[in-house]
Amino acid sequence: MTVRLTRRHALGALGASAALAGTGLYAPARAASKVTVGALRFTSHAASFVAYERGYFKEAGLDVDFRFFQAAQPMAVAIASRDADFGVTAISGGLISLAEKGAAKVIGGALQEEQGVDGQMILASVAAYDQGVTTPARLGGRNFGITTAGSSFHYMGSKIAAAEGIDDLKFKPLQKVGAVIGALKSSQIDAWSIVPHIGKALVGGGAVKHIGMVADYIPDYQVTTVFTSAQNAANEKAKTEAFLAAFARGAADFNAALVDRTEGDDGAEAMTRLIHKYVYADQPYEKASRSIVNGAMRINAGAALNMDSIGDQLSWFKSEGLVKDEVSMEMLVDDSYVDTL
């Protein structure tokens, strides 16, 4: 893919901020600025956890608290209402509608599907598998679990169905990820797609069956994005750049330790223990560590944003009547902060 530099030396500023922060010479954009970060308790949100635990947010002059959510839509609402300052999650219909109203902006990329790195899995219930749903091509007439209409799960299921020529896949909204997991394990739904740290644990425990990979249907899918309120994007440039710089440092550490494995076994162990404070924290480390390591998908360097993928997602939401036709990429994305792919 081709990388272009966005306006006003944006990524250069981020890189310089990160480098200076590492030497202790970085002058924070705003000393002790209180920031609330929305997150899910997923390995895919690890960049924020690393930036917090390793002091990168603090070095950037940000006093961070986390607010945890069960799905993407409520997080988007919290960002728009300024109950949270920054969020990291998938594009949703709610986020796009809030952007259309001038309340939210996507400002960077996070998790992305990449060939050669285990990504999101397509799962089937044991009952559906035993009935012949052994590949995504056999999903016709079946129930596919989603959190809400217009969620990333809805998008993935629709793209899979379209690629397989299936026009009767049924979507069952269950509001929370935990509820979808329960429904799949009890065969109340037939299929679902989810990040590997959850998918591999379910398959390994025999609760569900693995029938495909999302990357085979949506190559280079920008799974999650970094977003903020439109007010922050437009009027709090220093704070927003500081957040992205610290986030990018956290992502770089995560990728090195668990994706590229350049930090050795000790580095991987340290990273896994750090993430365990937030992901599967209710489980013993010995049990949780395998799932955390299994969820290590790449987080985009420098919070770079795949605009082609965002454009495809926006087009799908429009085609489904989930957002207004007049919503433009300019309404949804502020591309002044990071490189775009």
Results as ranks from 00 to 15, higher is better:
I160F: 09
R142G: 11
L305D: 07
E263K: 15
A18W: 02
D190S: 00
V214G: 11
K209Y: 06
A248N: 06
Y129K: 09
T36N: 15
A32H: 12
F247S: 11
G12C: 15
T89K: 06
A72N: 11
A288K: 07
H197L: 00
I166W: 03
V35G: 05
L174V: 01
R7W: 05
K172P: 02
Y280V: 00
F68G: 01
S92F: 02
F247Y: 14
V37T: 03
V203K: 09
A21M: 13
G145F: 03
Q188I: 04
G250C: 04
K170I: 10
I299F: 06
M1N: 02
G199R: 00
S44A: 07
S289L: 12
A60E: 13
Q120D: 07
A230T: 05
S151N: 12
K200V: 12
S152G: 09
H154F: 04
V88Y: 01
L314D: 05
D282K: 04
D339F: 08
E164G: 02
L258A: 01
T2K: 08
F86I: 00
E241I: 14
F317H: 08
D325T: 07
S186E: 15
S151D: 07
A256H: 15
S319H: 05
R41L: 03
G264V: 08
V106H: 11
G102V: 08
I91A: 04
G24N: 15
F227I: 07
A179F: 05
D216N: 03
E263M: 12
F69M: 07
F69R: 13
V117I: 02
P196M: 00
A234R: 09
F49E: 09
T147C: 08
I198H: 02
R298W: 13
L274A: 11
D83V: 13
N306E: 14
F68I: 06
G295T: 08
G87Q: 14
A76T: 15
Y221W: 06
S291G: 05
G311T: 14
F57D: 03
A31P: 09
R30C: 13
K318G: 09
L341F: 12
F68P: 06
H276W: 10
I189Q: 00
A161Q: 10
S151L: 05
L5S: 08
A124D: 14
G204C: 01
S97D: 14
I96F: 09
E113R: 03
A21R: 02
